[in-house]
Simulated scan of single mutants.
Amino acid sequence: MIRRPGHQADVEPPRGVPTPVPGLDLDRAATAVVAAGGSAARFGHALAAGQAQLAADAPVDLVVTLAGIAGWRAGVLGLRDDALARIVDVPPPAAAAALGLAEADLRAFTDRQRIDRFWWPGRTASRGYVCAIGGFAGFGGAWTAPPADARSLAEPGAFAVRTARRWWRVDADVWGSRLTELPAEPTAAAPRGGGATASLVTFSESYLAGVHVAESA
């Protein structure tokens, strides 16, 4: 179980600083990442790690593609599909470094991600816990009451949860999450059969909700 908001895959603190590239406004890119729900610090770290595996004269278009992958790694949910589609255009050492993966794990990661948005090589070690969301507003979190009545929604990676009389939508994947207040109680999705099953779980007297994946038997 995770005891504060965050993702289990974020084991390495973001420290890297990307190398300036003519024609690519890194400050603007970082601002866009934050506006889309990601972390500017993690974006910079991921892009710097990927750039370190490219030639110094790498084409700008290649660095732009790498920046999109870094944006996904920084928690921008909307970049997931594009990053998975274009990751083949980036040399594997650079793509793996940007994602914080060993190069040997890159193929397995991309293959599994296409069917399971919550998979990464360390999920088994985390006992299926992917991320924690919410937290007490008095400590910088999102909620003034503990979450309850969690349920899955129809869209992949989407859940709903109630805090007191307010309903929230949770969207998440392995790297990022987003909270949106809903106008009314949503309808739960029908159970999905087969494969790993993700759910949003709540804990007694906790202000956190967690995405957990139970592997199929």
Rank of each mutant, 00 (worst) to 15 (best):
M1F: 14
Q8C: 15
Q8F: 14
V11A: 14
P18L: 01
V21F: 02
D25Q: 07
L26W: 07
L26E: 04
L26A: 11
R28Y: 09
T31W: 11
S39L: 04
A40R: 01
R42W: 01
F43C: 09
F43I: 05
L47S: 06
L54Y: 03
A55H: 08
A58H: 03
P59H: 12
D61S: 14
L62D: 09
A67Y: 03
A70G: 08
W72V: 11
R73W: 00
L79K: 10
R80N: 07
R80H: 06
I87D: 07
I87H: 04
V88E: 09
D89T: 12
V90I: 13
P91V: 10
P91Y: 08
A95R: 02
L99V: 02
L99R: 01
D116E: 14
A125S: 11
G128S: 12
G128W: 04
G135E: 02
F136A: 15
F139A: 14
G140M: 05
T144R: 14
P146M: 02
P146F: 03
P147L: 08
A154Y: 06
P156R: 03
P156V: 11
A160D: 01
A160Y: 00
V161R: 02
R165W: 11
W167C: 06
R169P: 06
S177R: 00
R178K: 09
E181G: 12
L182H: 02
L182F: 01
A184M: 09
P186S: 01
A189L: 03
A190F: 07
A190S: 13
G193Q: 11
G194P: 13
G195R: 06
A196K: 01
S199F: 08
S206H: 14
A209E: 02
A209T: 04
A209R: 00
A209F: 05
A209N: 05
V213D: 01
A214L: 14
